[in-house]
Design a protein around this nucleic acid. Structure first.
Length: 108
DNA sequence: GGTCTGACAGCGT
DNA sequence: CACGCTGCCAGAC
């Protein structure tokens, strides 16, 4: 069992509504560690790779890591390739241009 | 247990 | 305006 922080992070990410986005900073904040945005990315990356969730885009739902972007509006990185992430985000109804979200609809 | 890493963010040059 | 360096926190080795 990971620390509460990890659990909280995953919980927050899961709660991101379909079609909305959330920055690493926001996630970290909701996880009670506003400055742990780096840890957030690390956690999601590990988790993703560990679970080996290499499922088709249609089946990606459990932990929508792709809905977590940078505060700059850029997609950032992705365990399976930023290009794939961009495709997913576009499938979610977002406008991606040059690896960046044009109109990020943050949850709040 | 100490040290390095990382899907970031902010400020300086 | 674009590029680079430093700081942060928690996890993994």
């Amino acid at each position: 069992m990971k620390s509460d922080f990890t659990k909280k992070v995953l919980e927050v990410v899961i709660k991101i509504p379909h079609g909305y986005l959330m920055t690493y900073q926001q996630v970290a904040k909701l996880a009670d560690s506003p400055k742990a945005y780096r840890a957030v990315g690390s956690i999601l990356n590990r988790n993703y790779r560990k679970r080996e969730w290499q499922l088709p885009i249609e089946n990606i739902e459990p932990i929508p890591c792709h809905r977590v972007i940078r505060s700059d509006g850029y997609i950032g990185g992705y365990a399976k390739g930023g290009m794939n992430k961009a495709r997913i985000l576009m499938a979610e109804g977002h406008v991606v241009e040059n690896g960046r979200i044009k109109m990020p609809k943050l949850v709040d």
